[in-house]
Design a protein around this nucleic acid. Structure first.
Length: 315
DNA sequence: AATCATCCCAACCGCAGTGAA
DNA sequence: GTTCACTGCGGTTGGGATGAT
């Protein structure tokens, strides 16, 4: 046996309430109360409404001291914290907010607060994922000789001021500032990651003999905030005059670094979302990628950089 | 100005709990 | 113990308001 309907669906009005219906319902309840029977109430008043509809209208709209809209920051916080702890128990949440109805809070949550909260969480997660990605997955970029020559003011160890890619290592100008270096790396699409072992000369030597393992450290350098990080570049494409490689940076300097990117990319200072979706400018030429396919492995010249005091070296 | 998309909120729907008969 | 009317609750919908194109 199915449940009997609460009212005759065919003879009840649905949809928005008219001011006359509101007035009738309000006047009756204020004078006589609900009588503990919502189903019988509309008939007593002469309303062609379902009892449930009357109850909802009274509780959510007509009863005294109801507040609509204009949720305060404090109310937002209460709703968020209660939702996190007890979920969508709207009646319980509403009980903590005088003048608010469960329906009102539910609507407010679904239409605004949820987006606000999720947006915040997504920004935080994006930042976290970005840091993890940075640490786990080297970023590949291509360095143009022009960029290096223009920005590094390269000085060869033997004193020659011109860059000769057949003779390595060569040093940028020791006076190159950390800021300039940072800007260059950013232009080239670099990223940062931390490195624990301190730089030692033997590592540099190793990196020459083992060109694919050259994590080098900027230690005690004048790079300022970039000290105690390492970076490594990749390979030179001798035919295209470009370097293709890896520049790694990392957390916890990532945030400071991204703030520094505003000037380079015109980003808003508070735009964490923008930085999360930021696309580093690609510098890889199609010619280079094609040449990479055909180049014998031993033709690759590994390029690395390190700082010792204010000196940088490309190997 | 017209059309379309999105937002917002009042109201509805159906299920579960409760208590009286 | 069972049935059923009623209430309360949470999910969903419909349509007006507003904004974008």
């Amino acid at each position: 046996m199915g449940r009997a309907p609460c009212c005759d669906k065919a003879n009840v009005k649905k949809g928005p309430w008219s001011p006359e219906e509101d007035a009738k319902l309000k006047a009756y309840i204020e004078q006589f109360g609900t009588g503990g029977n919502w189903i019988a109430l509309p008939q007593k008043i002469g309303l062609k409404r379902c009892g449930k509809s009357c109850r909802l209208r009274w509780l959510n709209y007509l009863r005294p001291n109801i507040k609509h809209g204009g949720f305060s920051e404090e109310e937002d916080n209460i709703i968020c914290s209660l939702y996190i702890s007890i979920g969508s128990r709207w009646s319980i949440i509403a009980a903590q907010l005088p003048g608010r109805t469960d329906n009102d809070i539910k609507n407010y949550w679904n239409t605004r607060l949820k987006k606000k909260l999720l947006g915040k969480q997504q920004r935080e997660q994006a930042a976290l994922a970005r840091r993890i990605h940075t640490l786990n997955q080297p970023h590949t970029t291509t360095l143009k000789r022009d960029d290096i020559e223009k920005n590094f003011n390269v000085i060869h160890p033997d004193g020659a001021s011109s860059m000769n890619f057949n003779q390595t290592p060569y040093f940028p100008n020791p006076n190159t500032s950390g800021q300039e270096f940072r800007d260059l790396i950013m232009k080239m699409g670099g990223r940062f990651c931390c490195s624990d072992p301190p730089f030692q000369l033997t590592q540099m030597e190793n990196s020459i003999s083992q060109p694919h393992q050259n994590p080098l450290l900027f230690e005690n350098s004048n790079l300022g905030e970039f000290s105690a990080e390492y970076m490594q570049f990749g390979v030179e494409d001798p035919t295209a005059g470009m370097f293709h490689g890896v520049v790694e940076f990392g957390d916890p300097l990532q945030n400071r670094f991204e703030n520094g990117m505003e000037g380079l990319y015109g980003m808003g200072s508070s735009s964490a979302e923008s930085s999360s979706s930021l696309v580093y400018p690609p510098l890889v030429s199609s010619e280079f990628e094609a040449s990479q396919q055909s180049l014998p492995h031993n033709h690759d010249t590994h390029v690395a950089a390190f700082g010792e005091s204010t000196h940088y070296c490309l190997l």
